[in-house]
Amino acid sequence: MNVLRNAAKSHRLIRIGGHRNQGLSSLLRESPRRFSTETEQPSKDSSSDAFLQTPSTGLVYGKLFGITKHTTKSDIVNLLEGCEVSLDDIKVDYAKSFAPSGMMIQFPSRFAYDAAIRAIGRKGRLYRLDRADRSQWDLMTSYDGKAVLLQGIPRTAVPDDIERFLSGCTFDASTMQIFVRQAFPDSIRMAIIHFPTKAQAMHAFMTKNRGFCLNTQILVRVLQ
């Protein structure tokens, strides 16, 4: 009888030990999943933080509306005093007729852009500043005050006639572009000519504006 009791007791211990081993195996199988869940979470947070980081350049672009053909870059720099904007940070947006439709402005940061909004609200209510895209800035030409626009060139005028009109001025004849723009009632013939410096372009404006080319009066404008 003792032999039978000992055999039955051994059988129960084996079954209990088997259940314990199965439980331990199950725990070990589940543990890696818990550990992997805990290690995945930080990488998700770090990627989210990287997404929210400010770009290293911090540049912000805006387009200023409400300017006229008499508005200069210097006027806008003075208007936005304290907003970290220089003459090189402004480009004039010209329509096909070369009437200025606005100015693109490059700000060094969002804080500078917000400061410009406040400055316009205080002392420049005739203007409106809207956010713009970097691509608009990149596609825009900056004449930088070193080019002049001649308007009203006679249809029969050739480049030599235009050079004679500008006699006494220092300019680069190879940059001359002659074109026609539609207007009412007649189209207007124009030309753009580049000068080595801003002073020389301004000299051409002061000495040649409303002068005559083949008995036709020519309007001269400095392009910014």
Score class of each variant (00 low, 15 high):
residue 106 Q to K: 15
residue 81 E to H: 15
residue 83 C to T: 11
residue 113 Y to F: 15
residue 172 D to M: 08
residue 67 I to L: 10
residue 55 P to Y: 04
residue 169 C to G: 08
residue 113 Y to I: 00
residue 52 L to A: 06
residue 111 F to P: 02
residue 175 T to Y: 14
residue 185 P to Q: 00
residue 150 L to N: 01
residue 67 I to C: 03
residue 170 T to S: 13
residue 96 K to L: 07
residue 97 S to C: 01
residue 49 D to F: 01
residue 139 L to M: 13
residue 56 S to A: 12
residue 118 R to F: 06
residue 115 A to G: 02
residue 73 K to Y: 09
residue 58 G to T: 11
residue 187 S to F: 09
residue 69 K to I: 08
residue 96 K to N: 08
residue 150 L to D: 00
residue 56 S to F: 01
residue 178 I to H: 00
residue 161 D to I: 02
residue 124 G to H: 06
residue 138 D to R: 07
residue 85 V to K: 02
residue 170 T to F: 05
residue 168 G to P: 04
residue 119 A to H: 06
residue 59 L to P: 00
residue 175 T to F: 14
residue 154 P to Q: 05
residue 103 M to S: 04
residue 42 P to Y: 05
residue 69 K to H: 10
residue 122 R to A: 15
residue 59 L to E: 10
residue 167 S to G: 08
residue 133 D to V: 11
residue 75 D to Q: 13
residue 147 A to R: 06
residue 105 I to V: 14
residue 115 A to K: 12
residue 105 I to Q: 05
residue 152 G to E: 05
residue 116 A to T: 01
residue 74 S to W: 11
residue 56 S to C: 03
residue 119 A to L: 10
residue 160 D to N: 14
residue 171 F to W: 03
residue 121 G to E: 15
residue 132 A to M: 09
residue 55 P to F: 03
residue 160 D to S: 15
residue 176 M to E: 00
residue 106 Q to Y: 00
residue 60 V to P: 01
residue 48 S to R: 14
residue 129 L to F: 06
residue 99 A to V: 07
residue 65 F to G: 12
residue 113 Y to W: 12
residue 131 R to P: 07
residue 185 P to R: 01
residue 66 G to V: 01
residue 74 S to F: 11
residue 164 R to F: 09
residue 167 S to P: 00
residue 112 A to L: 06
residue 96 K to H: 05
residue 105 I to H: 03
residue 103 M to A: 07
residue 51 F to I: 08
residue 166 L to R: 05
residue 76 I to E: 00
residue 77 V to N: 05
residue 89 D to L: 05
residue 64 L to R: 06
residue 148 V to K: 00
residue 189 R to L: 04
residue 109 S to P: 05
residue 75 D to P: 06
residue 146 K to Y: 07
residue 185 P to H: 01
residue 145 G to M: 07
